[in-house]
Computed example of a mutant assay.
Amino acid sequence: MSFTEQLRKENDDIFQLIFEHPFVEGIGKGSVPNEAMEHYIKADFEYLNAFMKIYGIAISKSSNRDDIHYFFNKMKFILDDEIHPHHNFCAYIGVPYEALQGHPLPPTADHYVKHMMYHAQTGTLAETLGALLPCPWTYQEIGKELMKKYEPTESHPFYQWITFYGDTGARNVTAEMRERLDTLAESSSPIEKQHISEAFRKSCELELAFWEMAYTCEEWPSKRKVMK
C-alpha cells in the first residue's frame, strides 16, 4: 500500500461524511439553496486564490525545474480551468461571477487557508502537499460518487460541475499530486510522515467544514443577527 493509499484509508470516515453532506447531496439532486451557493462561491474564489499562493511557496522550496514546472502548471489549472465549475454555479443562481469576487473569508475558510499556509511556511515540500491534497482528492471523489449515484445528463443543472470533477481534469490533478507525495514520502522520516498525516487529516476535516460553512452561510460572530 502506498503512502497516499494509507492516508485515504485512514480518512475514509471523513470522505464518507463529505459524500453525505446535504450541500453535496444537493448538487447531485440538482437543488441547492441560492444563498448557500452564493456563500460557497464567494469563499471558494478567495480560497483558490490562496491555494495558488501556496503553490508559489512550494515553487520557492523546489530544488529542480521539474517541480517548478509542476506547481506552475497547477496554478494555470486553477486560473484557466477551475473557473468553469464556478460559472456553472453562478448560472444556476443567476448572479454574475464578478459580483461574488473579493469578499472576506468566513471563519472556516479563513482557518483552512491559514492551516495550509502554516504547513507551507514551516514544513517540508511533502508536508505542503499533504495539506493541499485533500482539496482536489475529495472533489474528484465527490464528482465520481455523484456521477455513479445520479447518472446526470446534460439537462442536469450541475452537469458541468459534476463531470468536471468526476470525469476530467480533477482526476489528473489528484493522481499527479499523489504520485509526487508518494515519491517524497519514500525518503521522509517517521516524524515527517506523521506531520504529513496530521496535515492531511486536518485538511480533510476542513473540507467537510467548508461544505457546512457554505450550507449554513456561516459568518463571523459580530455579523450574526441577534435573535430577540
Rank of each mutant, 00 (worst) to 15 (best):
I59R: 09
P152F: 14
P22E: 03
E151V: 14
Y55E: 10
L208G: 03
S188H: 03
K74M: 10
H86K: 06
A43L: 10
L181Q: 01
A126V: 08
Y159T: 00
H156R: 05
I41C: 04
Q121R: 13
P221W: 02
A58N: 12
Y92F: 08
L208P: 04
Q101E: 12
N64T: 09
E98K: 11
S2P: 15
K225E: 03
I41W: 02
H195G: 00
A58W: 11
H119D: 01
T124M: 03
F51K: 03
A175R: 10
E218D: 03
L146K: 00
K53L: 12
S189T: 15
V113W: 03
E46P: 08
R201K: 04
I54Q: 05
I196S: 00
D67V: 09
W220Q: 08
K74A: 04
H111C: 12
S2N: 15
E38C: 14
E20G: 08
S189R: 06
A43S: 15
K149V: 12
S187K: 14
T183S: 14
L17P: 04
F23Q: 00
V226F: 04
T163H: 11
Q101G: 07
E127P: 03
A36I: 02
G56P: 09
I68G: 01
Y118P: 09
H21R: 05
K202R: 14
G169Y: 05
V113Q: 01
V32W: 01
A126Q: 05
M1L: 11
I78E: 00
M117A: 11
N172P: 04
A170N: 08
H86T: 06
Q6E: 14
P106D: 00
E186K: 13
L133N: 05
T183R: 13
K74D: 05
F77W: 10
D167C: 10
T183E: 15
G26K: 08
E145P: 06
P190H: 01
D110C: 14
I83T: 10
A50H: 10
T122W: 11
L125R: 09
T138P: 09
A91F: 02
K225P: 04
F89W: 05
S189F: 09
E38Y: 11
E176C: 10
I162F: 03
R65P: 07
A131G: 13
A175D: 08
A170Y: 12
F51P: 08
E154P: 07
Y40V: 05
A58D: 10
N49C: 15
E20D: 12
T122Q: 14
L208F: 11
Q194H: 13
P136G: 08
H86C: 05
Y118H: 15
F158P: 01
I41R: 02
G30H: 00
D81E: 15
D66E: 15
L132C: 02
A120K: 06
P221F: 03
K76Q: 14
F3Y: 13
A185E: 01
A209K: 06
D81Q: 12
T122F: 13
M75L: 12
I191P: 06
D67M: 11
M213S: 14
M52Q: 13
Q140M: 15
E205G: 11
E179Y: 09
G169V: 08
H21E: 02
Q140T: 14
L146M: 02
F23V: 00
K42P: 08
H21I: 09
A209G: 04
F71P: 07
D12T: 09
E141G: 06
N49P: 07
S2F: 10
H86F: 13
I68A: 04
E151W: 12
